[in-house]
């Protein structure tokens, strides 16, 4: 009996008709001490998306945000009234159900393109970030272990680092990324950047219009995090820096939505 699923979708639908009942709260790990590259990129993407939608939200840092997440180890997640939604895509869908969407006006073709690029970004960037953080020995020992374990007491930090690493490796193994060399990973990122850069050619945003949408938010989250996060070697940052179009997109979005002077987008 598909009751639970049905009930879920019905409540989602019903909820959608109501105006914003309460403030949106975004839960994420501590930005300064704890958060890692992939999580930070996702959190920033969600923040950018919410800002683009012109929605007010509150950031609530929690050391156990990962474990509080309703869908198992995915940060960030938002709390809106009784609803908890995690993962960038689900959040976009949820906000869309509420009647706020950045891509509703696009043609079906454009939407399909956008989805394709989003899945490209999700596949390449996230896996590359996970690889850098958990597989690359220098980054693992100098940054990841220290940051990931920072909120736990000894000896729990070592255990949890080991546990998390095991999980990530298992995931990367399934996706065929674990056996890649760092050069191959860089190559993948490079290809992805080239594709994105080509798509962006000559326009302000990926849609080719004057306003950004979720793809821009997602790309912004990743590119901005990769550029601004100091890591030993800085391999990813160096690659991304060589695509001026992407860097400019980042700067544009940053100034338009994250600075105080910005005129509300949309």
């Amino acid at each position: 009996m598909p009751y639970p699923l049905l009930a879920d979708s019905i409540t989602f639908e019903l909820e959608a008709q109501e105006p914003w009942p309460q403030l949106i709260t975004l839960y994420q790990p501590y930005e300064v001490e704890q958060i890692l590259l992939p999580d930070n990129a996702n959190c920033l993407a969600v923040q950018a998306f919410l800002k683009m939608c012109g929605l007010d939200f509150q950031i609530e840092p929690r050391s156990n945000a990962e474990y509080m997440s309703p869908s198992g180890r995915v940060v960030p997640f938002i709390k809106c009234g009784q609803f908890l939604v995690s993962d960038f895509d689900s959040i976009v869908t949820f906000i869309g159900n509420k009647g706020t969407s950045l891509s509703d006006h696009l043609s079906a073709n454009c939407k399909a393109d956008m989805r394709a690029y989003m899945s490209l970004v999700n596949n390449i960037f996230i896996n590359a970030e996970l690889y850098i953080c958990w597989v690359d020995e220098t980054t693992l020992n100098e940054v990841t272990k220290i940051r990931h374990g920072s909120v736990y007491p000894w000896p729990l930090n070592h255990y949890l680092n080991w546990q998390k690493r095991k999980e990530v490796i298992k995931k990367l193994n399934v996706l065929g990324w674990y056996n890649k060399t760092i050069e191959e990973v860089c190559k993948e990122v490079q290809n992805c950047c080239t594709a994105l850069s080509e798509r962006l050619e000559g326009s302000d945003y990926f849609s080719g219009e004057k306003t950004p949408n979720e793809l821009d938010a997602l790309v912004f989250g990743h590119i901005f995090t990769i550029i601004t996060t100091p890591l030993p070697g800085n391999k990813l940052a160096n690659i991304v820096q060589s695509y001026p179009l992407l860097v400019h997109l980042c700067k544009r979005i940053e100034t338009s939505i994250f600075s105080l002077q910005a005129i509300g987008v949309k």
Binding site: S63, N64, Y67, M68, Y152
Partner: peptide, 18 residues
């Protein structure tokens, strides 16, 4: 470990501790 329908007050306490 959180279950699907849990109050947020309980959810806040999820995660590992020693």
């Amino acid at each position: 470990i959180s279950s699907k329908h849990m109050s947020f007050r309980v959810r806040e306490q999820c995660g590992p501790n020693l």
